[in-house]
Every structure is written in C-alpha cells, then in structure tokens.
Amino acid sequence: MDLETQTSRVQRMEDKTAVVFADDYLNKLTGEKIERECRLRLNEGCTELVVNFSRTEIVNSIGVSILLGVIDSASNAGANVVFSDVNENTVELFEMLGVSKHALVNSKS
C-alpha cells in the first residue's frame, strides 16, 4: 500500500488528524515525499500530524532536516506534531538533537 492511500484512509477515520507513514530509511527522496504529504495535510486543515516510524530503521541527517521542516510548517500552521512508533536509536537521536523538544515522540515499545 503506498503512502498516499494509507494517509487518506487514516484521514477519513480520524478527523483533523493525519497519519503519514515513513519508509524504512528516511533519506532525501522518501523524506521529501513525507514533507510534501505533511504540507498537504496541514493545508487541508489538519491540527495533529502523526508521522509513523514503525517501518523506519534509520533516520540520517537529511531525515532530521526534513523532520525539522515538518515541525516548522506545523508550527506555522498551529498544528501539533507526533512522531510515533519510533525505535530506540531514533528516540535517542531525537533527544540528543533537541528534536523531541518540538514534537511528541512515542517510542515503539
């Protein structure tokens, strides 16, 4: 199932909340796809943006930059950001870099 189909399905289920699924490796190509998707949902009026990391093993620097962009866009739109199902290493990374100061980070366990 592709990203857009999944997102659309969640959108119908929970009003004002959009869930976007990240791929296994969050790099520039997949990251920019997520960023576009998030912006689209924010423009549609979503007030809570959930990025699901259940399938994501690694987030590199490009991924961090893109997620900061998502946070910035959400902040400008007055929406909250949740990073859900994040693995332990990525949680550590987000905390170390201060990403978790700007988004609610839910670990996998």
Binding site: K28, S61, I62, G63, S65, I66, L68, I71, D72, L97
Partner: peptide
C-alpha cells in the same frame, strides 16, 4: 539542496 539538508540535519538546525 542536499548539502543544506545535511548541514541542518547534522546539528539539528531549525532553518
């Protein structure tokens, strides 16, 4: 563009 991503992402610089 990629270089900017890498620079911002390496130290988690917001913009």
């Amino acid at each position: 563009r990629t270089s900017l991503h890498l620079l911002l992402g390496s130290l988690a610089i917001m913009r």
